[in-house]
């Protein structure tokens, strides 16, 4: 294969992996701590993208738009958590899945009502190209990868160095026990949910200049995010990182070889991994108590 094509393919795959990683980290944390499957993360992704669009059109600065997307999706997540999820934490897993799917579908309806159904383009923050090993690569894609790397480091520091992060890690092991120590777990839940929502918003905002923003975008990325979460194992940050890198590269390199493969190959890999290990690469066997 042409090495130039390969290098740009790898960079493309890394940028896709970054978006998938930012999204699935939220899903994974929410599952780990609260034992919910929060499909509405895909809504915050769309919200982030649409805010990036609107603010960048109004202010002319895409980065400002991404920032606004993060803030607004975090706030939306806060409202949803307060009014809906708080009531259903103690229910079965399927319960949260159905409810959050309802929020997702309803939210897509709200987005349609506000922004309409026409896909919108978002300007690239920087049109520059940089040469790596003789291949021209868009700087913006590298920036996306860099931001995702920073987020990973940030999340790692947060979970390992702050007391709230330690409490979240402890809660992933046994939330009842954390509560028994005297730690207000519902505040812990809110913090985790808002972080998850804000990261999904960040993913949407960063992804927006690379694609067209449209109301169904959350549903389009859904299959990939699911595959990432399933391959990596629910509740594991490390697994999420590894599997998003796998899925990103498979999508990108696969499409270089044979375009339809880009969609089918990750799915085949997912089935294979589930065949060997039904809980994903790094998934634990924990179940909801």
């Amino acid at each position: 294969m042409d090495p130039q094509l390969l290098i740009s393919g790898v960079i493309f795959g890394l940028s896709m992996a970054s978006v998938y990683f930012l999204m699935s980290i939220g899903l994974s944390l929410c599952f780990g701590l609260m034992r919910i499957i929060s499909l509405d993360q895909l809504l915050y992704y769309s919200v982030g993208a649409y805010l990036a669009y609107t603010v960048s059109v109004v202010s002319g600065n895409v980065w400002l738009g991404v920032l606004a997307g993060v803030v607004v999706s975090g706030m939306t997540a806060l409202v949803v958590e307060r009014f809906i999820f708080r009531r259903i934490y103690e229910r079965e897993l399927t319960f949260s899945m159905i409810t959050s799917f309802g929020i997702l579908i309803g939210g897509v309806g709200v987005i349609k009502a506000i922004w309409g159904v026409v896909p919108r383009p978002v300007r690239m923050p920087t049109p520059d190209l940089v040469t790596i090993f003789g291949t021209e690569v868009p700087v913006y894609r590298l920036m996306v990868v860099g931001i995702a790397a920073l987020v990973y480091i940030g999340i790692w520091l947060f979970l390992n160095k702050t007391i709230i992060g330690k409490a979240i890690r402890a809660g992933i092991e046994d939330v009842e026990h954390v509560e028994g120590l005297g730690i207000n777990v519902s505040r812990l839940f809110t913090i985790t949910f808002v972080i998850a929502g804000a990261l999904s918003g960040l993913a949407g905002g960063l992804h927006a200049p690379l694609i067209m923003v449209d109301p169904q975008m959350g549903l389009e990325v859904l299959a990939f995010v699911f595959m990432v979460v399933i391959i990596g194992g629910l509740g594991s940050i490390k697994g999420t990182l590894v599997s998003s890198l796998i899925v990103g590269q498979v999508v990108s390199i696969g499409s270089l070889i044979y375009a339809p493969l880009a969609l089918m190959a990750p799915f085949a890999i997912m089935l294979l991994i589930l065949l060997v290990k039904p809980t994903g690469l790094y998934g634990s066997t924990m179940v909801k108590k």
Partner: peptide, 20 residues
Amino acid sequence: LFVRLRSDYFALVNLALAVI
């Protein structure tokens, strides 16, 4: 393949199947 999975994975895999 699917029925061996836990109910949460089952739902996710099925939705992924629909999209595929």
